[in-house]
Design a protein around this nucleic acid. Sequence first.
DNA 1: CAACCTCCGTACGGTGCCGTATGGAACTGA
DNA 2: TCAGTTCCATACGGCACCGTACGGAGGTTG
Lengths: 171, 171
Amino acid sequence: MALRALAEGGVAAVAVEPLAARLGATKGSAYWHFPNREALLKATLERWEREHTEAVIELVEGEPTPDGRLRKLFGLVLEDPRASAVELAMLAAKDDPAVAPVLRRVTDRRVGYLVELFGAIGFPPAAARRRAVLAYSVYLGQAQLMSAAPHVVDGRRDLLEDTLASVTSRA
Amino acid sequence: MALRALAEGGVAAVAVEPLAARLGATKGSAYWHFPNREALLKATLERWEREHTEAVIELVEGEPTPDGRLRKLFGLVLEDPRASAVELAMLAAKDDPAVAPVLRRVTDRRVGYLVELFGAIGFPPAAARRRAVLAYSVYLGQAQLMSAAPHVVDGRRDLLEDTLASVTSRA
DNA sequence: CAACCTCCGTACGGTGCCGTATGGAACTGA
DNA sequence: TCAGTTCCATACGGCACCGTACGGAGGTTG
């Protein structure tokens, strides 16, 4: 529920009174479960970190080949922009003291996973790391673009191919 | 001044009372110059659009070759992350009704410029457009990453080369 | 049954912001 | 000089949120 609010209204929407009202309850109840708003937000963020970061990686791990995993990963952004809503909300609130550490952990975890992936494709460690950083930049940028200006992408299914080609090519 | 607040505190910081206080004035004064907060925000955003979007393009146009222009463009993000602060604030507030139209215009303008650039490099129109969308994604993503998790990039000067190679290679 | 703990509601004060009302000082022009 | 305009301050009410105080219903345990 708090996650839904986070996706829809950003970090600011993870607030005691609005959420209580949404649940048909009152603040009195909410403040029994959480000492304050910060604790509510922290719990929400950590729950997202726990459940959704690994979930994506597990989903991607279902693909048999490393190339297939990369394709799956970037395909996720393009096929369902709404799925990136929480990610974008986190980036939007990157300066919030409750958000920053979670964001940092998730970023490290994901870039680390990408390093593995590029290593499995055959890049040597240093190159794999560079590719991973680049690929994650593309991932973030596409999520932003899909969300903020979908018309520039609009049905551009070949963007996925372009992306994969540019990120994996050994020029 | 309002632009400074926008860069530092995001769209939420472009508020009547905080800005007035920052200027050593009072709201009474502020509400004489602007009918309401929305007008203040709109004026701030449009001023940014007017002065800074074209400014970047003009700066880049100073480079003699198209390749040099691309290099300059991506170099800007990596050499001074603070310069992207307003961009990121805009993206963070993309759902704000005052922000959305400005963001859309700026995105269109920039992607359009990139299409020109890739055309000048020698890509045929359709390919140039695809490259432009991809390149702008990388631009946005790098700005995000530099701002939210600088430690993963950290001194990685070769990222610029990687980026240019991946975006311009004719694989 | 009585004391107790759990969970929720009502009621209140505080803060930061929006927007309005109103008055006044300084300048400007007839 | 005096009326009008410009620019700013004080003061007020409103709203949305945070957080606290406190009371009460219902199950739990001695």
